[in-house]
Amino acid sequence: MTNILEVEDLHVTFSTYGGTVKAVRGVTFSLKQGETLAIVGESGCGKSVTSNAIMRLIPNPPGKIDKGSIRFKGKDLMHETEKKMRSIRGVDISMIFQDPMTALNPTLTIGSQLMEGLREHHKVSPDKAKRKAIEMMELVGISNPAERLKQYPHQFSGGMRQRIVIAMALICEPELLIADEPTTALDVTIQAQILELFEKIQKVTGVSIILITHDLGVVANIADRIAVMYAGKIIEMGEKRDIFYRPQHPYTKGLLKSVPRLDLDGEKLTPIDGTPPDLFSPPKGCSFYARCPFAMKVCNKVYPVQTNITDSHHVACWLQDERAKQLQATLPIK
């Protein structure tokens, strides 16, 4: 299968009153056709910035894509004109935002918001647009779509609104869907329904999905691969099985330990102590150094080299170094 998206060495900074925040510091990943990649990390780790950068929706100023390359189906998106980008947004790449309560314009009907993307890009007749809108509403599981098109966002529940947002994102049949925390603002039962919907639409439309979340529980169901981000870098990436059953990075392990699980009875939840580093002046070495229970001298001085555990499983941690492995015997009691 071919790669639909390739992101390489992406750097994004924001200049604020307090100085320059290095929000994304060299992120590299790729996405195959029809695949679901989950980007996981705590808030502020740069995962949303990464997704906005792909859409070239970083507000400038204060934000700026410093360097790196983003290739969508081989096309370089970094140097496209704004006009060209507009014809890509919504058509080839679509995006869903965290809070369905605010992602819909309260003063416009659902129908007009659903159809406007279609009418903007494909110049279809109002009639055809309406038929397509009804079809999309059915796809995302909204009953009585013809009637509901005339309604306003406040007349829908949170879960319904998120379904509408998904319909809106899919109406031009994009090949890539970026979902930024699509379930975070929803109730747990609704979350499950929305995740099922993602699986369904992927089956129906074959769309590739980048799922951005801080919740490993969400990922467990629908992701094919997982990238774990910490302080603006991807620290571990691999197949879902690799990450869940053979995590290598202490941070990934910490994340897994802090997720409640039903299958592991009696295991204690352990939080990760401390807070992420200040991205105004990110550390030279491993950014997890200060919180890492296995920190070595080297971790504070040099950023760890990438180690490929398997072809698809990569980790950036000094514990993978041969010399560190010799130390394992003297592992401090933790």
Partner: peptide, 25 residues
């Protein structure tokens, strides 16, 4: 607001975003 981000993500033109989505609100 998110609905403006959403409108941008839909690839609407700046004028449409300003007049249809922003100004009215």
């Amino acid at each position: 607001q998110d609905y403006i981000k959403m409108a941008r993500a839909k690839g609407l033109s700046p004028w449409k975003i300003i007049f249809k989505h922003a100004l009215r609100n």
